[in-house]
Structure formats: structure tokens, C-alpha cells
Amino acid sequence: MGLAKRIIPCLDVDNGRVVKGVQFLDIRDAGDPVEVAKRYDEQGADEITFLDITASSDDRETTVHMVEAIASQVFIPLTVGGGIRTCEDIRRMLNAGADKVGINTAAVFNPEFVREAAQRFGSQCIVVAIDAKKVSAEGEADKWEIFTHGGRKPTGLDAVEWAKKMVEYGAGEILLTSMDRDGTKNGFDLGVTRAISEAVHVPVIASGGVGNLDHLVEGVIEGKADAVLAASIFHFGEHSIQEAKQRMTDAGIEMRL
């Protein structure tokens, strides 16, 4: 008896539709975000993450309305990420009904923004999203680096050190995505997940690479993740949230059933 590990379906939303690309190519339409969120809520999702991947700022208003629509019908925690650059962006999303916001690139370019946001809104609603790639060669000690722009631009920042710094600055949770694994369906990068989870005292959400239900189990047991995030295995009906929870429960993981 104790705290359950969490399953978080992620909605990547572009121009008002849920999409999922394989490493950002071959984008497939997975439906209306409000309908998709309701379906996951009914299936027993522990939280929902809404990631706005729309490039243009014109569509930000659409996102606000969608977050409002989801938040008035879905009574589980909702995290909104994508394009969060100012405290005003955070305020709008929280007022629309988000419980937490994900800060990614803006944290890399301006770490003080994380401190300011945590002081103003509280660490409980500040999730720092980290996109990491393995940069050590075969045979070398493991090393991961932070990348921006969908994994294309290196920053020179060590991923584990960066995670520790973000927690010091006030991050209440870390959303860790392996850019090597994202969209591959080969499973999480368990090494970086475990390294960061053991290095920080806040919860870590593993993301990037889930292709089957055993990957979710590995993320928790070997990666020491507090929560696991996945998109495509749920969007296209391959698996339901209940099935995922059952598999994790069978593996001895405490879940909310």
C-alpha cells in the first residue's frame, strides 16, 4: 500500500488535432484532443499531458480553448507543454485549467525563467522537460547531453547535471525524453532514466520509445521512473490504459486500478 506509479498518455497536438509522428516525420492523425482526453480519462489514465507542437503563435488561442474544454470534462491532472516561454504563458494555461506546465527550450536558454516561474506559481506546477541524447561512444562511461529543436541542436549541457540544476531552480517534476528513442518503439533509454531519477528528489516521468507494454514495466523497474508517458501505443488502439495497468500490476508495480 502506497503511492502508485502513473501512466500518462500524451497528446501531441498540431493545428487542433492529435498527431503522432515517428521522429517527427510521417505524422498520423489520431483525432480530436477533447475526445481523445475523455477516452483516456474513462480508461483510467492517471494524468494527461497536452503538448502543443503547433509552430505558429496564431494557434495559441486554439490551444487555450482546448485546454479549457478538456479541463471542464476531465477530472484528473492535466499538464500543458509546448511554447511556454513567459510567466504570462503559464498564467494563461493555468487559468484555462492546466494543473502543470511543461517548460522545455525556454529553460535551456534562460534557466532563471524556471526559478521565476516556480517562485510565482509554485514548484508543484512546474515540469521541466528535458530532451536528452546519448553522446558517449561504445565502451566509454555513459554520458547524455541536452538537445533542443526536436533533437537537432546540441547544447553542451550534461543531462544529469542539468536535471539537478533544474530541481535546484524549482522544478517540481522532470519529464525526460530520450531523443534517440522517441518514436522508435524500441523502449525507453533506461540508462539515462535511472541516472536522472537517482540524482534528483523530485518525480521523473520517462518518455520516448514505448512500443509495447513491457517497455512501461522496464521504465519503472529498471529506469526507476515515477511515471511513464506514451502516445502511439494508446492512440491507435494497440493497447488500452487498463491493459497497460494490468501488465504493470502483474509485474509487481503498485498501480491505481
Binding site: G2, D46, V202, P203, D226
Partner: peptide, 21 residues
């Protein structure tokens, strides 16, 4: 506390975040 531990001595994350009984 930032060094909060479970009954078996394993590390527990703080904040206490998620679904508990």
C-alpha cells in the same frame, strides 16, 4: 524532507505526487 525514505529504507520522492490510498 528531501531525504525522505520508505519503510524499507529506499528513497522516496518529494513532493509526494500522484495517487495514494
Amino acid at each position: 524532507g528531501e531525504k525522505h525514505k520508505d519503510h524499507d529504507g529506499s528513497k522516496l520522492k518529494v513532493p509526494h505526487m500522484g495517487w495514494n490510498q
